[in-house]
Amino acid sequence: MATQTFDETKAEIFTDRILNVLNDSALALMISIGHRTKLFDTLAELRPATSQEIADAAGLNERYVREWLGAMVTGKLIDYNPVNQTYFLPPEHSAFLTRSAGGNNMAPITQFISVLGAVEDKIVDCFSKGGGVPYSEYKRFHEVMAEESGQTVVAALEDYILPLIPGLVEDLEKGINVLDVGCGSGRAMNKLAQRFPNSRFWGYDFSAEAIAIATAEAQQQNLTNVRFEIKDAATFDESDRYHLITTFDAIHDQARPDLVLRNIQKALRPDGVYLMQDIHAATEVNDNLEHPIAPFLYTISCMHCMTVSLAEGGMGLGTVWGQQKALQMLADAGFTLVEIKQLEHDLQNDYYIVRKD
């Protein structure tokens, strides 16, 4: 058997890669904390300031703020003046780390790292025993998901997503029936219900916690044209009722996505449209080698989307089910016309415009 030579250069490159992984994963936790404590928002409003001044402005403990600032400075997210011992968040960085950045704020998505880390022990058990980890084990997941989708999907609904379907805005203004399957905390339907008072909106989700949040928000806004229900998407049985059915980042983590898609097909009116937003990826791993966030997506899948499906005895489709698998399952569900669209500013999602015929 031929012996393989050990490439010292390749080994050195790899060790550097691992060091970068360690530093960047640590920074992800620190960015999450900076977002949750509103430290980035505070810094964006300050001139170069000391750790005590920053802590006072944020209403936080100085010793913790100072250690957090150490991670931010050495991670090159925040500038530091050693003479004056002051810290400053450059505007080029605050444009992607603060709430005022709107949809450009990349800090909220880092919260998923800590949320997923909290179930690592249970995921390790699944590697040995199989099965999955149920939704109930994920603390703050709905909260984080609602915030992240609020910045991406919900914020883009009116200006970018709805216009993907010609004539849809006009139909919504006139009045149509709309269902969101896997509605989560209901932000999308509540926003549309407020914007289009002549249309009627429903949201289904099997999470009682999510439905309670959605309903409370609707009541707070005095919305009378939207209703949220606890319902398993794999078992709801309606026919030819809705002009528009939507799913936002919801199909791939269903226990039985095949049944969900069939139920959607049945509930859609013959002239209706199904709008499926899901992750932009290919089905085969080799086709995702150049995907800019592929490792993140496979990690989310392994530690959440795939495992919550398996916990229900489901298919475990996973986050990265990809366009090819999606098209196959849509066809199997009885949909014959599918068009895939993307938004220029959105590298993470595909938008499937689906019709019966």
Rank of each mutant, 00 (worst) to 15 (best):
P166H: 05
N225F: 02
F228Y: 12
Q254F: 11
W202M: 13
C183L: 09
F196M: 07
R200C: 11
E217T: 08
H252F: 14
I230D: 03
S207F: 04
F236V: 03
A156H: 10
R195H: 12
N190R: 02
Y204V: 08
I213E: 15
Q221G: 04
I230N: 05
E170T: 12
L157I: 07
L223M: 06
S207M: 06
D237L: 00
L168N: 10
Y242N: 02
I213A: 13
D205Y: 02
N190L: 07
Q220I: 05
I165C: 03
A188V: 12
D205T: 07
I251E: 00
K174F: 13
D253F: 07
I251N: 03
W202G: 05
R227A: 14
L223E: 09
D237F: 06
F201G: 06
K191W: 10
N198P: 04
V178N: 06
Q221M: 13
N198R: 13
F201I: 09
V178H: 10
L192F: 05
A218V: 02
V226A: 08
G184Q: 11
I213L: 12
L223N: 01
V181Q: 00
W202T: 12
T215Q: 13
V181L: 01
P163R: 06
D205P: 00
T215A: 09
S207D: 12
R187W: 11
I230W: 04
I176K: 02
G150T: 03
A214G: 01
F196P: 09
I211C: 01
R187H: 13
A234Q: 08
D232K: 04
Q194D: 14
T224N: 15
Q151K: 11
P166C: 01
R187M: 14
L168H: 06
A193V: 10
A208E: 15
K231S: 12
L168V: 03
H243Q: 15
S149W: 07
D171K: 15
D180V: 09
D249E: 13
D180I: 02
V153K: 10
V226S: 09
K191Q: 14
D237C: 04
A188K: 03
L192Q: 09
G184D: 10
K174V: 11
L192T: 04
Q220E: 14
P166D: 05
N222K: 13
T247Q: 04
S239C: 13
A214D: 09
N225Q: 10
L179Q: 08
I245L: 12
A218H: 05
V169Q: 14
